[in-house]
């Protein structure tokens, strides 16, 4: 099953886990499995309308999923998906 790496700031909302092993064949399915398992993650990753928040980025290896097939990017056994925030301020 694919793995999902959780960045340090979000681990308190994932029972302290740094890596989750989840069932799913696409990025969207993995994210759904993640919030089913750890519902507190939903508000930090998704807006009220269900869209990924702008500072949330997902990488499959070194590639941003936006350069692949977005949330429909297929995942294979052994793939590792990373949640990477981008940081902005003033």
């Amino acid at each position: 099953m694919p793995q999902l790496k959780i960045p340090t700031p979000l681990r308190p909302y994932a029972s302290g886990e740094s890596t989750l092993t989840l069932e799913g064949e696409t990025v969207a399915e993995i994210l759904e499995a993640m919030v089913d398992l750890h519902p507190q993650l939903r508000k930090h990753l998704f807006s009220e309308t269900g869209q990924l928040r702008p500072f949330v980025n997902l990488f499959l290896g070194e590639e941003n999923i936006n350069q692949l097939e977005g949330l429909q990017t297929p995942l294979e056994e052994g793939d590792t998906l990373l949640i990477i925030p981008s940081i902005a301020g003033g």
């Binding site: 925030p85 940081i87 003033g90």
Partner: peptide, 23 residues
Amino acid sequence: RYLITASDMLRGEHEADSLGLSI
């Protein structure tokens, strides 16, 4: 204003991992 891109954050995660540290 400042912006740290996701690619730079990914680099930071790799750098932290290689040093046994966290961001």
